[in-house]
Simulated assay, not measured.
Amino acid sequence: MSDFARNLDWNLLYTFMVVVQNESMTKAADELLRSQPAVSLAIKRLEKSTGQRLLGREGNRMTVTPAGQALYAQATEIYSAISRLPLTFEKAPLSLTGRITIATIDHVESRDFNAPLSAFFAKYPKVELEILVATTADVIRMVERGSATFGLCDGVIPRGLGARELMRERFGLYCGAGHHLAGRTDLGPMDLRGEPFIGFTADVLGGSHMGDVTAYRARASIGQYVRGQSSHVNEVRRMIECGLGIGFLPTHLAEPFVAKGFLFRLPPYEKEPTATVYLISNPAVSLSGAEQRLLDQILAAIPG
């Protein structure tokens, strides 16, 4: 076992972790700024070192073997521990200092989150904050790796991460005022099939983080042709408003634009799909004093 640890190239573990998280050799190569053959060779070297087959393939889909799943769990834990070593060296004084990074999907509005955030930074003015806006998949990835203190996202949260429900958003389907469906009150789901669709980057039919909105699309056969997408709510709204296609938006964000005549609401008008936004954290990551205190204060402020 000691020979194995001594001879293992830890860069291979990192490459393997990125491949699994991207579910693709090509996407992993793009993130790592390496060629696809180089990434493929690294995986083969890791499989030779471990004596186990780590990845497989079913048709065009990459799969992770049981041995690969076990190794991935260990690799993410090792990476998060190493990446956060500088924070573990900090000895937090009574007047907390340090840097906190929060990863979030776009346009999360919650008083239960904002109030403790405001109180914390008023009390500890020397603590710095960075907020990164990303897709659901990237928020989860940053929390898994320990590059974010915690995250705010929807979707399916992987086992091993802590998740507390922060809020729920209702989603309605909309088109722009100049769209050929605008103004019609006789529409049903059948009338929406085949219409070009505007969606969020993480809203992929059959994807890893498929939530209520995507499930509704699948059941109603809406949005098979995705004409535009963004991870930012305002850009999705802009494309819908400009007539590029129909798309789902949080109702509380869309209603002011409906009132101004820029958007038109389409069915469903009842039993709209919802998205649950979670505060997620990684219990395997060792947080600094400032990070832990902020996380504790926000969790204490969330009902339930």
Results as ranks from 00 to 15, higher is better:
M1C: 03
M1D: 02
R6M: 08
N7R: 03
D9Q: 02
D9R: 00
L12F: 00
T15Q: 14
V18E: 14
V19S: 08
N22H: 09
A29D: 02
R34G: 05
A38G: 02
A38Q: 15
V39A: 10
L46M: 11
Q52E: 10
Q52Y: 03
L54Y: 00
R57C: 07
P66S: 15
A70V: 15
Y72N: 04
Q74C: 09
E77S: 07
S80V: 03
I82T: 04
I82N: 05
S83P: 07
P86E: 07
T88N: 09
E90N: 04
T97Q: 05
T101M: 02
N114S: 07
A119C: 08
F121Q: 13
F121L: 13
F121G: 14
A122T: 07
P125M: 02
I131P: 01
L132D: 06
T135H: 00
I140N: 03
G146W: 02
S147D: 14
S147T: 14
L152T: 02
L152C: 11
P158L: 03
R159Q: 14
G160Y: 09
A163W: 00
L166E: 02
M167T: 10
R170S: 06
R170K: 09
G172I: 07
L173E: 03
Y174G: 02
L181W: 12
G188Q: 06
P189K: 13
P189G: 08
M190Q: 01
G194W: 14
G194S: 12
G194E: 14
L205Q: 05
G207S: 01
G207K: 07
Y216R: 15
Y216E: 03
R217M: 04
R219Q: 11
A220Y: 06
G223S: 08
Y225D: 13
V226S: 01
G228A: 15
Q229I: 00
S230F: 03
S230Q: 07
V233K: 08
M239S: 10
M239Q: 02
M239F: 15
G243S: 12
G245Q: 14
T251A: 13
T251Y: 00
T251H: 06
H252P: 08
L253C: 05
F257V: 07
K260N: 11
L263G: 15
F264D: 09
R265T: 05
P267L: 02
T274K: 10
T274I: 05
A275K: 03
T276F: 08
L279H: 06
S281V: 10
S288L: 13
G289S: 06
A290F: 02
E291W: 03
R293V: 09
Q297N: 10
L299W: 11
A301R: 10
